[in-house]
Simulated scan of single mutants.
Amino acid sequence: MTTIADRLANAQHRIEQAAQISSRNTDEIQLLAVSKTKPNSDILAAYAAGQRRFGENYVQEGESKVKALTPTCPDIEWHFIGPLQSNKTKVIAAHFDWIHTVSREKIAARLNEQRPQEMAPLNICIQINISGEDSKSGATPAQLFELADKVVQMPKLVLRGLMAIPTATSDKQLQKDEFQRLQALYQELQSLYPQVDTLSMGMSNDLEQAIEQGSTMVRIGSAIFGEREKR
């Protein structure tokens, strides 16, 4: 029977192979294990196998996991990667290390106001709706730089980069085009803000393509934990 440790090792191997093909250093690419809907025991199994970065999509579920697991896993790193309503920002500000889905100044301002003074600044990725689909969250490319300028002025936040979810498609060229547009935005953002170092794109089914186009963080869930439970 294949274990979580086996699947985690396989995901890491895929990252290493993709990096090699693209003539990139594997150390430039981080694996974020997407643990939404999965039990704490699965997270602990991945942690025991060496994984430290975990992504959660749901505020209440994520909060309970942070509270339950952080005391015994002090070097675990929690990333919030789901949509966030303004009335839920306090939980994220108080418990998470990263959020990948900031797309409005109002959300950023609330996170800044609610980040506890004793905690390190909250790491921020601006979500871009690179596909332009109405069903997807995210700032438009045209809105990016004004929003970035607001975020960098907030003392309890640190702008780290961009996140996007491209079109779910078997059209490799469309996928490549969207990844390339995101990489171009990322490089422009880096030229303005030297602390920017994270391009969060690519998931279980397209991580090779994302790495080829410059991803520095791939979000992998089902390839590690199996298909997620229905909510």
Rank of each mutant, 00 (worst) to 15 (best):
S135M: 12
R110M: 10
N129A: 13
I128T: 12
G138F: 05
C125F: 05
E133N: 09
N123G: 03
S137L: 12
E113G: 08
Q143Y: 02
G132F: 03
L111S: 03
S137Q: 13
S135Y: 00
Q143E: 15
P121L: 00
L144I: 13
S135I: 13
R110I: 02
Q117P: 05
A142T: 14
G132K: 09
V151M: 04
D149M: 02
D149A: 14
I128V: 15
F145E: 13
S131K: 12
L144R: 10
G138S: 10
L147W: 04
G138P: 07
A148Q: 05
S131H: 04
G138R: 02
D134R: 15
P116W: 02
E146K: 13
I130N: 01
Q114S: 07
V151T: 12
I130Y: 06
A148H: 04
R115M: 07
D149K: 14
Q143N: 10
S137V: 03
P141I: 02
N123S: 13
D149Q: 10
I126E: 09
C125M: 14
D134N: 14
N112Q: 04
S137C: 07
S135C: 08
E118K: 05
A120R: 11
P121V: 00
I124A: 07
V152T: 14
M119Y: 15
V152F: 02
A148P: 07
A139M: 12
R110W: 05
Q114W: 00
Q127F: 10
K136G: 07
C125E: 11
N123F: 01
P116A: 02
I130P: 06
N112P: 09
Q114K: 11
V151P: 12
P121D: 05
L111G: 04
R115D: 10
L147Y: 09
A142V: 12
E146V: 10
N129E: 11
V152P: 03
I130T: 09
P141A: 03
M119A: 11
A139Y: 04
D149C: 04
P116S: 02
L111N: 00
E118H: 08
D134C: 11
E133H: 04
D134V: 15
M119V: 11
I124P: 03
G132W: 06
P141K: 06
I124W: 06
E118M: 00
A142S: 15
D149V: 05
K150Y: 01
L122F: 10
L111Y: 00
L122K: 03
L147E: 00
E133S: 05
C125Y: 00
D149I: 00
N129M: 12
F145K: 09
G138W: 03
E113Y: 05
A139W: 01
